[in-house]
Simulated assay, not measured.
Amino acid sequence: MEEGWKEVFLTVQEYKANMAKDILENAGIKTVIMNQHDSAYKSFGDIVVYVPDADENKAKELLKELKH
């Protein structure tokens, strides 16, 4: 990922990544999702949610419940 962005959520389930993105965007935080699933084998690879550096702590706090 480019400089200036921090990973705040990691999952293998696409719906959880989309839930995280919705939570963050509703709080006014820009979000980027990187899907690193293997195109041939959907069960391999991660989906990572990134936010700008300045929003890292707020984003992690907002997503605390989603990680459980």
Rank of each mutant, 00 (worst) to 15 (best):
M1P: 13
E2S: 04
E2W: 13
E3R: 08
E3Q: 03
G4C: 14
W5E: 10
W5M: 11
K6Y: 10
E7C: 15
V8D: 01
V8P: 04
F9C: 09
T11C: 01
Q13R: 10
E14L: 11
Y15M: 14
K16H: 03
A17E: 12
K21C: 15
D22R: 15
D22K: 13
N26H: 07
A27P: 06
A27G: 10
I29C: 01
T31A: 05
T31K: 07
V32T: 11
V32Q: 05
V32D: 02
M34Y: 07
M34H: 12
N35V: 03
S39R: 07
Y41K: 01
Y41P: 00
K42E: 14
S43C: 10
S43L: 08
F44H: 09
F44C: 03
F44P: 01
G45K: 00
G45I: 01
G45T: 00
V48K: 01
V48W: 00
V51F: 09
V51Q: 09
D53R: 03
D53C: 00
A54T: 09
D55V: 13
E56A: 12
N57L: 10
K58Q: 02
K58E: 04
A59Q: 03
E61K: 12
L62W: 01
L62Q: 07
L63F: 02
K64L: 10
K64R: 12
E65K: 07
L66K: 04
H68E: 12
H68G: 13
